[in-house]
Amino acid sequence: MNIRYRIEQVAELPPALTTALGIFVLALIVLLVWGLVRLPDHTRLRSPEARERAQRRKESQRRQKKLRARRESLQGKAR
């Protein structure tokens, strides 16, 4: 059954039933969008401990990057 056949089936329904079906479909779409908008932001760190760990990790990565750059620079000068 293709989509054209389905559309013709809906078109043959009484107007009140077609209107009710349309309102029902619109309500489902609105509820779906509302549900997706209301989902919690999973990228945000909720607990203070997690935020502290993330901050420490970021600082550690920054220090490691500086040390790596310094080491490479010294090795370049030694050659």
Rank of each mutant, 00 (worst) to 15 (best):
E52M: 08
T43A: 13
A69I: 08
P15M: 10
K58Q: 15
P48I: 05
L36H: 03
V37T: 00
D41F: 11
P48N: 06
V10S: 07
R68T: 12
R63V: 13
R71I: 15
L67V: 06
V33L: 15
E49L: 07
L74Y: 04
R63A: 15
P14G: 08
G35K: 07
K65C: 01
A78Q: 05
R44W: 02
R62M: 08
L13I: 00
L26Q: 04
R51T: 02
A69G: 08
I23T: 06
Q61F: 08
T18I: 03
S60W: 06
R79F: 04
R62W: 11
R38Q: 12
N2L: 06
L13F: 10
Y5E: 12
R38K: 12
L45D: 09
A16T: 00
L39T: 03
R63W: 06
V25H: 08
W34I: 04
R56A: 13
A11N: 13
T43H: 14
R68A: 15
R71H: 10
N2K: 07
E59M: 06
K65F: 05
E59Y: 02
I29K: 02
Y5R: 14
I3S: 06
S73Q: 14
S47K: 10
K65D: 11
A16M: 04
R6W: 02
A27N: 05
T19Y: 02
F24S: 08
T43R: 14
K77W: 09
H42V: 03
E72M: 13
V10T: 04
V33Y: 13
R51N: 04
Q75G: 00
L13A: 12
K66T: 12
L21C: 03
Q64F: 13
E49V: 02
L17R: 14
T43N: 15
L67H: 11
E8Q: 12
R51D: 02
A50C: 05
R53P: 01
I23F: 04
I7G: 00
T18A: 15
V37M: 07
K77A: 13
Q61W: 07
R79H: 07
L67Y: 11
N2V: 07
R79N: 03
K66D: 14
Q75P: 00
I23P: 00
D41H: 08
G22R: 13
S47Q: 09
R79I: 14
Q75L: 14
V30R: 06
R63H: 11
R56I: 05
L32N: 06
A11R: 15
A54S: 14
R62Y: 10
R38G: 05
R44G: 05
Y5C: 01
L26S: 12
D41V: 00
R71M: 12
A50R: 08
L21E: 10
G35F: 07
K66Q: 13
I23S: 07
K66L: 15
Q9V: 00
R6F: 03
G22C: 12
A27M: 04
P15H: 08
Q75D: 10
D41S: 11
R51Y: 02
R62F: 11
Q64M: 13
Q75R: 12
F24L: 02
L13R: 15
T43Y: 13
Q55M: 05
L26E: 06
V37N: 02
A11Q: 15
R46W: 07
L31P: 00
I23L: 11
R57F: 01
L74Q: 10
L28R: 09
A20Y: 01
L45W: 01
